[in-house]
């Protein structure tokens, strides 16, 4: 059964049609890579799926039900969006990693956080490190585990490896592979050729439309 389904989705902003009649079906456990020229509407598709934007027309279904049927905050905990060049808030790394617990009104779980820090090769003392002192790669890793403290059903990744060096990129890719193995459905926007080369299923988006779908058999 499809976990996500986009039905004739369009999105207009400031008089321009950004997304133009997109149909897409994503099955539970899929790892979908979305690519295409800049300004083609890839990030907008992710933001529409994340309910950070609302389609002008058409419908997006999650587990067979329209987005509107869900409470927005509950939906966003299940369909989690990780930004390109994310912003870390508060003062320290811990402020960021404690936020998902605050959102769920749960007590901060040091063990859970520690496990995720290990997965992205960050030592425990990083929790007290000021966010302004982090490198771009460390920042991206913290932002990513912030989305993964409570595993979502769907993880939307918007160019999360852009600008990272090979070492940081390898860590991030390994973490994404890990959560995919854990059953999380992944939709990843990327331009990067090495990631595209390893993708199983690629959606090409141009001028607000899906122009091609490529499924690479294993």
């Amino acid at each position: 059964m499809a976990i996500l389904e986009l039905q004739q989705v369009t999105f207009n902003a400031i008089g321009h049609q950004i997304i133009n009649g997109v149909d897409l079906q994503v099955n539970s456990g899929d790892y979908l890579t979305i690519s295409g020229p800049s300004g083609g509407g890839k990030s907008t598709i992710l933001k529409l799926i994340a309910t950070l934007l609302t389609p002008t027309s058409g419908e997006i279904l999650f587990n067979g039900q329209a987005q509107a049927a869900y409470q927005t905050t509950a939906y966003r905990k299940e369909v989690s969006y990780c930004f390109q060049q994310p912003t870390l808030f508060g003062e320290t790394v811990q402020d960021n990693l404690a936020f998902p617990f605050t959102v769920r009104e749960q007590v901060y779980d040091q063990g859970k956080v520690q496990h995720l820090l290990d997965l992205v090769d960050l030592p425990e003392d990083y929790l007290t490190k000021k966010v302004t002192e982090l490198s771009g790669g460390e920042r991206q890793r913290v932002a990513l585990i912030r989305n993964l403290i409570f595993l979502p059903k769907v993880l939307l990744l918007d160019e999360v490896t852009v600008g990272l060096d090979q070492a940081n990129k390898a860590i991030v890719k390994k973490l994404i592979e890990q959560v995919h193995t854990d059953g999380v459905t992944i939709l990843m926007v990327t331009h990067e050729s090495d990631i595209l080369a390893q993708a199983q299923q690629i959606i090409w988006v141009k001028e607000g439309r899906i122009v091609d779908e490529t499924a690479i058999s294993e």
Binding site: L52, T73, S80, T87, F99, P100, V103, A143, R146
Partner: peptide, 16 residues
């Protein structure tokens, strides 16, 4: 702006 969007994307309500 971006920080608010990220908090919303993490499931925070508008007040949080």
């Amino acid at each position: 702006h971006q920080q608010i969007l990220e908090k919303l994307a993490l499931g925070a309500d508008t007040k949080l």
